[in-house]
C-alpha cells in the first residue's frame, strides 16, 4: 500500500493542463513537419506552416496554442495498491483544473446547457477512472475544444453493416465536419462494447501515439484504409482543399452484444493537446 496525497494530484493536474495548452508535444510537431511535405496544395502547405509557427510562438510567448482551451478531460489509471489521502479525489481533480485555468490564463469554456451561464472556472472536469494493478497513479489530460468535439457521434450499426458500414459512417462524419473541426484532424474510432463504451473507446483511441497501429492486423488495415480514404476527400488543411485532411486514424475495439455493432467517432483538431504524468 502506498499513500498519495491529493495535494500532489491537484498540483499535477494544474501543471498538466497549463503545459498541454501551451506546449504542443514533440510528437505532434514532428507529424506536422511531415505533413508539410505530404501536402500537395500550396494553400494547404501554407496553413500547416502557420500551425508549426503557431506552436513555436505559443511556446516562446507562453500563451495557449488555441484560445479554445477546452473542457478539462482527465483520465486516471489508479493502481489498486494506492491509498489516496486528503480530499475527495473528484474534488481534488476539480481544484487542479480550477487552478490551472486561472493561473495559466486559459479560457473558461464550461457552461450550463440551457441558460449558457459560464461556470466561471472550467469545472466540472470530465473524469474517467480505471483501476489497474500497482501502486502508482497515471494521469492523462486531454483538453478538448468544442469545434472538433461537435462532430462526434455514437451510432448503433447492425451486425450486417460490418466493416463497410463502419467505413461509410466515419467518412460521413469527416465530410459533415468539413472545415469546422479544424483539419488536419485525428480520428478516433471506438468499435464494439456497448453504447457508452464505444464512445469511451473512441476517446481513448485519440490518445494512442501518432503512427502506432492497432495490434489486431485486421483493425490496423482498417485504420490505414480509413486514413487513405479520408485524405482522398480533398477537404485538406482548414478545409481549403488538399491531400492532408487527417494526420492519423486510430481504432480501439472490444467484443459487443450478438445483436449490436456500436460505433463511435470522435474527432480531434490539429491542436491535439495531451500531457501525462505518473505519480
Amino acid at each position: 500500500m502506498r499513500e498519495i496525497h491529493t495535494d500532489e494530484i491537484i498540483s499535477t493536474i494544474e501543471r498538466l493542463f497549463i503545459d498541454a495548452n501551451i506546449n504542443l508535444s514533440d510528437e505532434m510537431l514532428e507529424r506536422l513537419n511531415k505533413a508539410v511535405e505530404e501536402e500537395k496544395s500550396p494553400v494547404g502547405k501554407e496553413v500547416i506552416r502557420e500551425l508549426i509557427s503557431n506552436a513555436q510562438i505559443a511556446k516562446n510567448e507562453q500563451i495557449p496554442i488555441c484560445q479554445d482551451t477546452g473542457l478539462a478531460v482527465t483520465f486516471l489509471e489508479i493502481g489498486q495498491d494506492v491509498h489516496i489521502v486528503g480530499l475527495n479525489l473528484e474534488d481534488a481533480i476539480a481544484e487542479g483544473v480550477r487552478r490551472g485555468y486561472k493561473n495559466g490564463y486559459l479560457r473558461k469554456s464550461c457552461c450550463d446547457p440551457f441558460t449558457r451561464k459560464n461556470t466561471g472556472d472550467n469545472t466540472p472536469p470530465t473524469i474517467h477512472t480505471k483501476i489497474v494493478p500497482g501502486e502508482h497513479i497515471r494521469i492523462v489530460v486531454l483538453p478538448k475544444g468544442g469545434g472538433s468535439e461537435n462532430y462526434g457521434e455514437v451510432r448503433m450499426l447492425v451486425p450486417s453493416d460490418g466493416k463497410e458500414g463502419v467505413k461509410s459512417f466515419v467518412l460521413e462524419m469527416v465530410k459533415k465536419g468539413g472545415p469546422n473541426p479544424c483539419p488536419p484532424i485525428i480520428v478516433g474510432v471506438g468499435i464494439g462494447g456497448n453504447f457508452e463504451m464505444s464512445a469511451i473507446l473512441s476517446k481513448e483511441a485519440l490518445m494512442m501515439p501518432m503512427g502506432e497501429r492497432n495490434k489486431d492486423p485486421e483493425m490496423a488495415k482498417l485504420e490505414l484504409e480509413l486514413l487513405e480514404e479520408i485524405n482522398r476527400t480533398g477537404i485538406g488543411p482548414q478545409g481549403y482543399g488538399g491531400t492532408v485532411t487527417a494526420l492519423d486514424v486510430h481504432i480501439k475495439s472490444m467484443p459487443c452484444h450478438i445483436a449490436s455493432l456500436p460505433v463511435a467517432v470522435n474527432i480531434q483538431c490539429h491542436a491535439h493537446r495531451k500531457k501525462e504524468a505518473i505519480l
Partner: peptide
C-alpha cells in the same frame, strides 16, 4: 476571410 483555426498564438502576434 478565413483565419487559421487553432492558430491562436500566431494570430495574437
Amino acid at each position: 476571410f478565413g483565419a487559421t483555426g487553432g492558430a491562436g498564438a500566431l494570430l495574437s502576434k
